[in-house]
C-alpha cells in the first residue's frame, strides 16, 4: 500500500510540484495519473521510489517510511518498485538480457554483479520476464537494434525481473506510435492483473487513460483535482483537470487522425 500524508514537494527554484497531497493506493490497483505537462505527475511517481524527496509530509510505501530512509533503506525500497521510463533508459551497448538482469542487481551478491556472472535462478527470472513480454528471442541482441516498442518491452521486463510489488511508469508510451502504445499498455495491464502488481502510470492521452485505468487521478498545479474510477471521468472532468476544453492533442485517436 502507498499512502501520502499532507505531502509536499518544492523544488530548488521554488516551484511547488506537490501540494498537501493526501492519497492512498491499495495493493494491486491499476492507477493512471493525468494532467497537463508540469502538473506534477512525474514528481508524484518519483516520490514513491524516493528519486524525488518530499519537502514535508509523510509517505509510506509497503511499510517503508520513505522520507526517513537511509541510503540502504532507499535501495531496499527501490528494489521492490519497478520503474518504466518514457525514454526506455536501456543500456544500448549491452545485450537485452544484461539490461533485464539489472533488475536483479539488488538480489545478487555484489561480486557476481560486477563480473556479470549471475546465478542460474536469476537468469531464469530475467528470461521469464522477457518471455512475458514476448521478446525472449532477442535476449542476446544489443538493445540498440530494437524498435521503440521492443525497447519499451525490454524496459517492462527489467522492471518485472525485480519481482516488484509496485510498478511505476512515467509516460511509458509518449515516444511510441498509437498501435505500439496499445500493445505496451496491454502488457502493463496484463501484468498488473496476473501478478497482482500495483501499477501507476502517467499518461498524456485521455482516451488511453479511460481505456486502461481502474482508477484515474487528476493533477493540476501539484494538486489532486480528481480521484475516481475511469468510468466516472467524462469530458467535464477532463475540462476540470486541464483547465480548458479538450483539443485533438489530448486524445491519441484524434491525434493519430491528424
Amino acid at each position: 500500500m502507498i499512502r501520502f500524508d499532507k505531502a509536499n514537494v518544492t523544488y530548488k527554484g521554488g516551484v511547488s510540484a506537490m501540494k498537501d497531497l493526501d492519497l492512498e493506493i491499495g495493493d494491486g490497483e491499476f492507477v493512471v495519473i493525468v494532467g497537463l505537462s508540469g502538473a506534477g505527475k512525474s514528481t508524484l511517481i518519483r516520490a514513491i521510489n524516493g528519486l524525488v524527496p518530499l519537502t514535508s509530509g509523510g509517505l509510506n510505501v509497503n511499510g517503508h517510511d520513505v522520507p526517513n530512509l537511509n541510503a540502504k533503506g532507499r535501495r531496499e525500497l527501490r528494489s521492490e518498485v519497478g520503474m518504466i521510463f518514457q525514454g526506455f533508459n536501456l543500456v544500448d551497448r549491452t545485450t537485452v538480457l544484461n539490461n533485464v538482469l539489472m533488475g536483479r542487481l539488488h538480489q545478487v551478491p555484489l561480486w557476481r554483479t560486477l563480473i556479470g556472472k549471475y546465478p542460474e535462478e536469476d537468469i531464469q527470472i530475467a528470461a521469464k520476464a522477457l518471455d512475458r513480454v514476448e521478446i525472449l528471442d532477442r535476449a542476446y541482441v544489443r538493445a540498440t537494434n530494437l524498435s521503440g516498442g521492443q525497447r519499451q518491452r525490454v524496459g517492462i521486463a527489467r522492471a518485472l525481473a525485480q519481482e516488484p510489488k509496485i510498478v511505476l511508469a512515467d509516460e511509458p508510451v509518449a515516444s511510441l506510435d498509437p498501435p505500439t502504445s496499445h500493445v505496451v499498455m496491454k502488457y502493463l495491464q496484463q501484468i498488473s492483473r496476473d501478478l497482482g502488481i500495483t501499477t501507476i502510470v502517467n499518461l498524456h492521452f485521455l482516451d488511453l487513460a479511460t481505456a486502461y485505468a481502474d482508477r484515474i487521478i487528476g493533477l493540476r498545479d501539484g494538486e489532486l483535482v480528481f480521484d475516481g474510477p475511469g468510468s466516472d471521468a467524462d469530458e467535464q472532468t477532463f475540462r476540470d483537470i486541464y483547465g480548458r476544453s479538450l483539443t485533438a492533442d489530448d486524445t491519441m485517436a484524434k491525434q493519430a487522425a491528424l
Partner: peptide, 8 residues
C-alpha cells in the same frame, strides 16, 4: 537513472 531506480 535506471540503475538507481532498481536499487543498485
Amino acid at each position: 537513472e535506471a540503475t538507481d531506480a532498481v536499487g543498485a
